[in-house]
Design a protein around this nucleic acid. Structure first.
Length: 892
RNA sequence: GGGCGCUUAGCUCAGCUGGUUAGAGCGACUCGUUUACACCGAGUAGGUCGUGGGUUCGAAUCCUACAGCGCCCACCA
């Protein structure tokens, strides 16, 4: 044990790299990351499920942002006495990981890794990679200081999560929500798999827009950018009101298009825009989802002419079979031109659908796949969202819509609620089967014509569906599969629904919506109370970070250089939810400066007090400055707490920063130096210093866990029952009015400093000051030492009100006059105009408030607090009005 | 095409439901090494709040039109 009186030795500059690892190891060893091991009675739970990073590589700065925000919330709530669970994990990310491993194997010289290795060996490679990647991610998450419960770590592809996936599939299948069907799907010819609508992006390209007829006898001219699909046309659609084509509607033609005979029915559909192109369009039900919908309305047959290999198939005719789409397109154009059928070629801008991964053009093809039906009513097995009872019929879409909104799941920033609803309204059935090897195998077994849904083979001769599930199917269960579902565990009961989901705004549809769907469906409750979305972290010029631009800021690199706390601050302060943020090393360096500032504040306090000790209770304030700093601390704690509760991390951080740097360090610390010279004030000043420091450390802990814990260790090092700052209790927060006299004191000091620089008094030279203090004489007298030191005055003379300082010439000789109150310097004419304007404004304001309060519609309907606040404001404004009037009268 | 935003100091942004003289950080400039900190301190300069109109006693804030920028969704075939 160190001796009680021994003072800590602190380095001049804070060196994060020397302390962080050890601190994290001590936190982890304490067990306090685990909610079950937290001390004290903790009734309320606070839960965050960490969005599992993909096991495709390493953490980037976006992950670091998430970790910083989530850890902030977790540490804040842990200190506030909540039973906090932050459950970490990783995502197998099916397609992304498989694609990554494939390309790694190619780099090693394999030409077609999947074919060369076969399913089993290839999967072994993927698993090996995923394991290594998972280990890296965990290590990196630790180094960011994440206080998550590693004992509950989950993986979207482990046994428990597989059980949850299978159970979810079974339930939905039995409710008729999962269905196998032959439908037009998004097909990625490069990776040979289906994609969900959300995995398809658009890319702007130029395309040839051909206008032509199928053959010379066909009466209607159509246009397309994709002539190769026209072999699959089964109709031509026109608008019902289009007079040009009315006579053909209902007729069937059998034109020969580039050597292939078609059966074309002319149909009328309101979806057709008569003003675009020729006002007629060839309907290709097999290769366009829009056309497929039209085909459904008109009972048209589907003819597939493009194969899964991205080439023309035999239905397109012998002359075209095997051609790539580009080849076929050129050939058709030439044939049409040669036959004199081509009426026009135009170059137009077109949005080409491409795969999110790989970027290959996506084809729309009819295929037999598994779908989740979002518009199909099913019978609820439990009361849901407080709106529906067990046994009622609803659709998944209804559930997803109802779960979000005021008093339900709240999305921050608010404007994303609209985006969410917009997406829900346009949502189509979700294709969940993928022709990817890496992923949860579809739990369906076939034997001849028979089909069963089961975890394991139902018997001999059954073969499992070769496909796997869309990775978001398993991620959708994340908030509850991580707690043991489908088993009815204690964790599930205690920690679900979770409190906050913090994630990137780019996966609101992919993930957030799917979690809402799965949780409301399976558990009858929305999976989280608040969704906090962060934006993209960009470089200092606002560009996306990418390897090719070489502008990537690796959170681990900069953490090593500037300290993890600095990196976390730079990601949390100065950013707004949902908005993209720009990050630069300069910004990180400025927050490193702040961590160092806090370190040095601590160093000063710890080395200048006679005894390092904790001061748990608010000490007695002996001076104006003591009163001021203690009141400010309380207000700041109240403000910061309120802001953090509302997930306003940046404002809270700014308030704390302002308090710590400007108020505590620049003002109070300087004053404390003076007070500590006074034997009568020494002991009390030390207590104030220690007390404020202790609370500053607490308030900052969620933002900068490492440096605060490091200092705490020094502060509480000798205390009995020493604990981690991590589990200390959050400062009690009340708003307290700081004494206004202190502001005046600051003004006096400022005024003298100004005069010094006005007279260009050399800095080292002390001056004499005569203060005409008037009514403030008491204040000046009591704080004479502070004024004299901070303003560097040698002798301070306080003159009673009305008496003028003697010689103006003394200023030249180093004597300075300070006239107080400062209002004496104000231009009277200007002041009068200002006051008159203010009077007018106040009168109007008072009038409007009175009108508001005399309106029963307002007083009866508005919330009580709001009405009360209005009353208070009225009283305040009336008082102000009187003051303004008095001031005006005094001027006359 | 539909939807959602943004435009405030040289740069990055705060500014909540209208209410003192519009703020912060970074940068610039001046001064200063006083034993917590130069990863620092004391100061200074810099804004007709995108433009026009409107509502109001009062507008950066509300409404409206316009201009510029961004994001999301859909694809006109």
């Amino acid at each position: 044990m160190p001796k009680a009186a021994k003072k800590p030795e602190l380095e001049k500059a804070y060196d994060a790299s020397k302390v962080e690892d050890a601190i994290y190891r001590r936190w982890e060893a304490s067990g306090f990351f685990n909610p079950d091991k937290l001390p004290g009675k903790r009734k309320d739970a606070f839960t965050i499920m960490m969005p599992p990073p993909n096991r495709t590589g390493i953490l980037h700065v976006g992950h670091a942002t998430g970790i910083a925000i989530q850890d902030l919330l977790i540490r804040f709530n842990r200190m506030r006495g909540k039973k906090t669970l932050w459950l970490p994990g990783t995502d197998h990310a099916a397609i992304a990981t498989q694609v990554k491993v494939e390309s790694l194997l190619r780099e090693k010289g394999m030409k077609d890794p999947k074919r060369e290795l076969g399913r089993e060996k290839f999967l072994a490679e993927v698993v090996k990679f995923a394991e290594a990647s998972g280990a890296t991610i965990v290590k990196q998450t630790r180094s960011m200081g994440a206080s998550c419960d590693w004992s509950r770590e989950a993986y979207t592809f482990d046994k428990e999560r597989n059980a949850a996936v299978n159970e979810m599939f079974r339930m939905m299948y039995e409710d008729g929500l999962i269905e196998r069907g032959y439908r037009v799907v998004n097909w990625d010819p490069q990776f040979q798999t289906t994609l969900s609508d959300d995995e398809v992006l658009t890319k702007e390209t130029k395309a040839k827009f051909l206008t032509f007829t199928y053959d010379k006898d066909f009466p209607i001219t159509i246009s397309t950018t994709r002539p190769e699909t026209k072999f699959g046309d089964t109709a031509v659609a026109v608008h019902p009101d289009d007079a040009r084509y009315k006579k053909y509607v209902g007729q069937t033609f059998t034109p020969t298009f580039c050597g292939k005979k078609l059966h074309i029915k002319v149909i009328a559909d309101k979806a057709v825009d008569p003003s675009f192109g020729t006002g007629a369009l060839g309907v290709t039900p097999a290769h366009s989802m829009i056309d497929a919908e039209m085909a459904e309305r008109h009972a048209l047959p589907t003819v597939q002419v493009i194969g899964p290999d991205g080439r023309m198939n035999e239905t397109a005719g012998a002359a075209f079979k095997g051609l790539t789409l580009v080849e076929a397109r050129a050939k058709i154009e030439k044939m049409l031109a040669d036959a004199g059928l081509l009426k026009g070629v135009e170059e137009i801008a077109q949005n080409l659908p491409v795969a999110e991964r790989g970027g290959a053009p996506v084809e729309q093809l009819p295929m037999k796949q598994w779908f989740i039906r979002v518009n199909k009513p099913f019978t609820l097995k439990q009361a849901t969202l407080g709106k529906w009872k067990k046994g009622e019929k609803v659709t998944l879409k209804q559930l997803m819509r109802e779960a979000v909104g005021p008093k339900r799941t709240e999305i921050l920033p608010d404007q994303f609620t609209k985006v969410y609803f917009h997406w829900i309204d346009n949502l189509r059935d979700w294709c969940i089967s993928r022709q990817i090897w890496f992923g949860h195998r579809i739990p369906v077994w076939y034997k001849g014509e028979e089909m069963r849904v089961a975890d394991r083979a139902p018997g001999k001769g059954w073969e499992q569906d070769p496909d796997t599930l869309d990775t978001w199917f398993s991620s959708g269960t994340w908030t509850f599969s991580t707690l043991g579902w489908p088993k009815k565990t204690k964790d599930l009961e205690r920690f679900h629904p979770t409190d906050v989901l913090e994630t990137g705004r780019d996966i609101i549809f992919f993930w957030v919506a799917r979690m809402v769907m799965m949780s409301t469906y399976a558990l009858g409750a929305s999976p989280f109370k608040t969704v906090y979305l962060h934006g993209l972290v960009r470089d200092e010029q606002g560009r996306k970070m990418s390897k090719s631009l070489g502008n990537i800021i690796d959170p681990l690199d900069v953490s090593a250089k500037y300290g993890t706390d600095a990196v976390r601050l730079s990601l949390v302060i100065g950013t707004a939810p949902g908005a993209d943020t720009k990050l630069s090393e300069e910004k990180i360096a400025s927050y490193r400066n702040f961590t160092n500032k806090l370190w040095n504040i601590s160093r000063f306090v710890l080395t200048s007090v006679s005894k390092v000790q904790r001061v748990p209770k608010k000490p007695t304030a002996k001076t104006l400055s003591d009163k001021w700093i203690l009141a400010r601390l309380e207000s700041v704690a109240a403000q910061a707490s309120a802001s953090i509760e509302k997930c306003e991390f940046s404002p809270a951080g700014e308030v704390l920063r302002e308090f710590t740097w400007t108020e505590f360090a620049d003002w109070y610390l300087e004053i404390a130096k003076i007070q500590m010279h006074d034997a009568k004030l020494k002991a009390s000043t030390e207590k104030v210093l220690l007390y404020v420091l202790e609370n500053v450390l607490k308030l900052w802990h969620p933002y900068m866990p490492f440096v605060t814990e490091a200092v705490w260790d020094l502060l509480a090092g000798n205390a009995k029952g020493k604990k981690f700052l991590m589990i200390e209790s959050w400062p009690k927060a009340k708003t307290a009015a700081a004494p206004k006299e202190f502001t005046l004191l600051q003004e006096i000091i400022g005024a003298i400093r100004n005069i010094r620089s006005e007279y260009k008094v050399e800095p080292a030279k002390k001056i004499n000051a005569t203060i005409v203090a008037g009514a403030r004489a008491k204040l000046v007298k009591e704080n004479a030492a502070v004024i004299a030191t901070l303003a560097r005055i040698d002798t301070l003379t306080i003159l009673p009100k009305g008496e003028k300082p003697k010689d103006a010439a003394s200023a030249m000789a180093g004597g300075v006059e300070v006239h107080l109150p400062l209002a004496g310097m104000v231009d009277m004419a200007k002041e009068k105009t200002r006051l008159e304007k203010e009077k007018q404004n106040l009168e109007g304001f008072v009038k409007s408030l009175e009108a508001k309060l005399s309106n029963p519609g307002y007083t009866d309907n508005a919330p009580k607090e709001v009405v009360e606040k209005t009353r208070q404001m009225l009283a305040e404004k009336k008082e102000e009005l009187v003051k303004v009037q008095v001031a005006l009268n005094a001027m006359k």
